[in-house]
Write a protein that binds this DNA or RNA. Structure first.
Lengths: 251, 251
DNA sequence: CACGATGATTGGTCTATGCCAATCTCTCGC
DNA sequence: GCGAGAGATTGGCATAGACCAATCATCGTG
């Protein structure tokens, strides 16, 4: 464990004991208190500023910032996403069967079209309300003896990590607009041809092994993406998914 | 101008003279050559790695990486966006008139609902093909004597910078899925109720003055967003808009 | 009492240096 | 001929120290 990561954790604990808007000790003070160099502390603080926990004011201090409604779009599971919003993530398994990959899925998973894959369809819910329809494809060899019960109201990522020791490290996700068809509308409890986001994601382990190909259909009336834009080229746009309240839609 | 920024520029020039895949000089070598400390050089290189120009390989070297097809989602105008893709940006002004803000636009622009605003509707084209429908709201005081001719096939951002000295520094953009209505379908040459992205953006100057509120409707069959995901929390997701070729859609 | 100068404090940037860890390369011995 | 191992080279991380720049509180002066 690097010192920087350790420092990050210690500062996070410190933040927990402070009110929003309060200042943390000065950099010089903190670095000597923690027994590390100021540069190392600054690297850890940079981290926390990027993640939105802290806010710097030159000449004034570093302050605990307002908690974000949504964190940035990272490689998180639906479950984790909802937990961060303070909502209860639910899941109803609609389908679970083994099949062969086929051309498109095979290409996405980097396996032969004949390879066996497990197909999982789940309805994902937030506080009991249907939010998204998820279709997962996973190479069958990776998840032997998977049962419906294991998937019920569970995070798939946590499941495969605990049970199979598979840890997702990176991925690629595309986002496009679409509309719901009859089946999807029924499952999501929205009118036919409602606008929706279609996310397609492939995820890999640190070793580069492709673990899953997921197509998720999110209700467009409840899910939206927000990007903070900055002219500075050294700071990527911060894209945050946001749940829209039912009333928060005028247009 | 900070030394780090200067260094970034000098390294960029160096990269221009190298082939993709070639290694740049080692950090120790470069830092002494440029007469700066290694840490400062590393900060500049970190920058370029984040922006996708360079790739680090521990124990091996730092290499010029494959140029990205699309840069990350930054605060760019449609025109700049298309230029980067090697396409010709076009614009047809559909409407240009002065009106009062109204409640919603007033709130977005942080002006009174009675304030005068200029409303601009433009059809944006890439290589002659309609791509997006843009509805701009700008406080009238900011852009006196704006005419249709100035807007023709021009970047609005470049226009207001050259003519009025207004420079956009930051902004906030929301993204949601929607479908086209009759008028929009006709203008964009797509079937009625086609899926589309609705972008809403407010932009500010460095001084914090809100300059514009834009609603852009992008064709869902030609425009898509791609996000590189990473488990590391210190690296925000890289979201890149991608133009889909007409044939690049199976589903 | 109001206000401006001033100095202390805070974050921002840079230098110089050392050691660790991953990788590559070359050489030596079988 | 070839593989194992040593050493050189590269990026990764951490330290200590210095100075700059923005901010804020305070104190003295009008």
């Amino acid at each position: 464990m690097s010192k920087q990561v350790l420092t990050r954790q210690r500062v996070l604990e410190l933040i927990d004991q402070l009110q929003v808007g309060e200042a943390i000790p000065s950099e010089r003070r903190l670095s000597t208190d923690l027994g590390i160099s100021r540069l190392t502390l600054r690297a850890a603080l940079d981290d926390l500023v990027r993640d939105g926990y802290l806010e710097r004011r030159h000449g004034s201090g570093t302050f605990v910032s307002e908690p974000k409604i949504a964190q940035q779009l990272t490689l998180t599971s639906f479950s984790e996403d909802m937990r961060r919003r303070g909502m209860t993530a639910g899941s109803r398994t609609i389908e679970l069967r083994e099949t062969h990959a086929g051309a498109a899925v095979g290409r996405a998973l980097k396996v032969s079209p004949d390879a066996r894959v497990v197909l999982i369809r789940r309805l994902r819910m937030a506080d009991g309300e249907p939010m998204a329809l998820e279709t997962l494809h996973v190479p069958a060899a990776l998840v032997p003896d998977l049962t419906r019960e294991m998937l019920e109201d569970a995070s798939f990522y946590e499941l495969i990590e605990r049970r199979y020791g598979v840890v997702i490290a990176s991925g690629m996700q595309s986002i496009e607009p679409t509309v719901t068809n009859e089946e999807e509308s029924k499952l999501l409890s929205v009118p036919l041809h409602s606008p929706a986001f279609l996310f397609e994601r492939t995820s890999r382990t640190a070793a580069g092994e492709t673990v899953e190909f997921v197509r998720s259909l999110y209700r467009g009336d409840r899910y939206r993406l927000v990007a903070e834009l900055s002219q500075r080229r050294d700071r990527p746009a911060l894209v945050t998914p946001v749940l829209a309240a039912a009333a928060d839609r005028e247009t």
